[in-house]
Structures are given as C-alpha cells and as structure tokens.
Amino acid sequence: MTPSNNRSLLVIVRHSPYGSSLARTSLEVALSSATFEQAVALLFMGDGVLHLLPDQDSSGIEARNIAKLIASFPLYELDNLYVDEAALSQYGLALSDLPQNLQAVDDEAMHELLCQHDHCLGF
C-alpha cells in the first residue's frame, strides 16, 4: 500500500439529516472509507448535530433512518466521532442524550481536527 492510500480523512457533516441528500452522502463516504480501512473521522458540526437525535423515525417519509445507520458505525470500526459542543447547546441537546462514543469539541479543537487530517471533506 502506498502512503497516499493511507492518508487520514475528516468528513464534516454540517447539514440537517433529512432536508437533502447531502447528509446521506456524507455518511456513505465515511462508511465507504472505513470499509476500505482508510483512517476516517467524522465531525458533526452546526446543523449536522441534528443527525444524532435519538428517536428518529423516518418510516413515514420513505427515507432511511439516519440514527440507525449511525448506530452501525462501531461495526465499521468508525470510532472517531466528534460533535460540535456549541451547536449541541444551541439545540438544547446534552451529550448524554446522544449515542455513546461521541467526543464533544469546541471551536479550537475543531480547528485542530482540520489541521490534523490530510483531507477534509465538508458536506
């Protein structure tokens, strides 16, 4: 494997989950990268934190359930999940409301994530 195949990827999810296909695409990119054993981390920023709400039920809108998909991330060994602390409080959410293994980050730490990864893909 050449080094270029092993570069780390940060996927940034900034849009709400059901309003467009962007959200779904961003998660698919993360999952595909993880499937091919690329180092990948996921940051839920701004409106993107709405992906993490429990109790989602998309059965009435013919869309797949994003919360369920996110629940499968540990099976893909997609374990580096970060969430925008300020956006959480903006939406009145606490880390304890959300799926486990998420790490809350402030603006400083998010900038650090941008710098730490070889590639950033924003959605």
Partner: peptide
C-alpha cells in the same frame, strides 16, 4: 435482523463483526 436494527445492508467487515 441487522437490516432491522441499522436500516442498511452490511458490508463485509460489519457483517463479520455482527
């Protein structure tokens, strides 16, 4: 059961783990 739980069909690695 996996599909019911995660609303998606698994790739190989998650299927093995599951």
């Amino acid at each position: 059961q996996y599909y019911e739980e995660f609303d998606s069909s698994p790739a190989m690695r998650p299927l093995v783990k599951y």
